[in-house]
Every structure is written in structure tokens, then in C-alpha cells.
Design a binder for these strands. Structure first.
Length: 209
DNA sequence: GTTATGATTTACT
DNA sequence: GTAAATCATAACG
């Protein structure tokens, strides 16, 4: 993974994000490369775990039933922008807004496989161990390692300013593990929806069962 | 104005 | 396995 490749590759076009099936998009994002250029540091990580959130029908989503607030407002924008928010007062969670304007769908990026500029990620996380899988395992940890903060709320993912995603590999369905989402038990039966996607056998996401 | 709580992580017991 | 950390947001008065 070279710096030239990261800088020259075209980001995924906004049409990719503006399709209507957020569950489909969440699966297609597996294997793609998340690139950040923040505080002068170019970093890249392959996406290995995602979750889909559907604003209109999903109780687990902040924008459930099109509940529009200052925080969720960005989810109603057209796909291709970042939705970053602070959870538990500590962790920044990075989401990708999808679908057309007015449809509050988003994909939460839960884990990645570090590909470029690992020293910067370790420094941000305060981890020195070269083989610590915790570096980018978990949504809060990934965002911190990549340098993503709430300052990136609403930034475009298609103009290569701070955060963007490039095409890399496609993961075939038999290598995608589907499971219920975690941390959303308050959502009742919607918490059981198999909208959490992982790459089978990848060391950088929590172990498959 | 106040108050409860979370799309989590980490360090303990 | 259990609990604490810690603050922006949202709901309420």
C-alpha cells in the first residue's frame, strides 16, 4: 500500500452511497479502503466490519421514524457524507450517510485492518505493541486510530479532503458473516436484525462464532 | 434551566 | 464477568 496509490485512486462516487438499499451498501463496503488525511497524516484501513442503520423503520437508529434533531440532521442529507457523533462521552463513532436526501440511512464502520501509516494510528491510540488487534477493532477505536473526531461531522466522502473511501476488493457473499447488532438491546425486536456484517476469518474484527 | 442515558472501551474483581 | 469513565444530546420542566 503506497502513498501514491492512496492519493491517486478515485474515491467511490456519490452514486454508490445514494442507492436506496443501505443493507446492500453495508455489505459492499466490506473490503473497501477507508482513507483519512487528518493533521497531516495519511492513513488507510480496509473495512472489515460494518452495521446498517435504517432511519425510517429501525428502532436502533438515532433517526428512527425520521426523528430529526440537530444531531441526526446530517443523516437526512444525500448519501456520501460523514456522520460522526460522540458516544458515552468518550468515543467518536464514524458513520457513512447513504440514500437520497430525506432518507436517514447510514452505515456504521465498526472495524478495519490497518494498511498504511500504522505508527500514526498507534500513536493516536497510545498502543506500541506491533501486533495489537485492538488498534482498530471496535467503532470507537477505529475512529480514534484514523484521527476521526466530531469535527468531521458532515464532511464529504467524495472530494478527498479529510476522509474518503476507495475501491479495493469485493467480498463475495460466502465470506460475509451476518449477525445481530450489538449495544442496541433497547431497540426491542429490531435489535435482532442481522444487519452487522464481518469478513469471515479476518483477524482485525472480533472473532466469528 | 435540569437530568437521564448511550450504535463503547478499559480496567478491574 | 462486572463496573467505571465521562459528556453531548435529548427530553422534560
Amino acid at each position: 500500500m503506497s502513498e501514491d496509490f492512496l492519493r491517486l485512486a478515485a474515491p467511490l462516487p456519490c452514486q454508490f452511497y445514494q442507492r436506496s438499499d443501505v443493507v446492500q451498501i453495508a455489505q459492499e463496503l466490506l473490503g473497501k479502503v477507508l482513507v483519512t488525511y487528518i493533521e497531516g497524516q495519511l492513513c488507510a484501513a480496509k473495512i472489515v466490519e460494518t452495521e446498517a442503520y435504517c432511519g425510517a423503520t429501525d428502532k436502533a437508529c438515532h433517526a428512527h421514524m425520521n426523528r430529526r434533531t440537530k444531531r441526526t440532521e446530517i443523516m437526512f442529507a444525500a448519501g456520501g457524507v460523514a456522520y460522526v457523533y460522540l458516544c458515552y462521552g468518550i468515543h467518536s463513532l464514524f458513520n457513512i450517510v447513504t440514500n437520497q436526501e430525506g432518507n436517514a440511512d447510514a452505515v456504521l464502520i465498526r472495524a478495519g485492518e490497518p494498511l498504511y501509516n500504522l505508527p500514526a494510528m498507534r500513536q493516536r491510540r497510545g498502543i506500541s505493541n506491533l501486533d495489537d488487534f485492538r488498534l482498530t477493532a471496535g467503532p470507537g477505536a477505529l475512529a480514534k486510530a484514523m484521527g476521526i473526531t466530531t469535527a468531521h461531522y458532515g464532511v464529504s466522502l467524495t472530494d478527498k479532503t479529510a476522509i474518503w473511501i476507495i475501491d479495493f476488493e469485493s467480498v463475495s457473499p460466502e465470506y460475509i458473516i451476518k449477525s445481530p447488532r450489538v449495544g442496541v438491546s433497547y431497540a426491542g425486536e429490531d435489535a435482532l436484525l442481522p444487519w452487522r456484517f464481518r469478513i469471515k476469518g479476518n483477524k482485525w474484527c472480533s472473532p466469528a462464532k
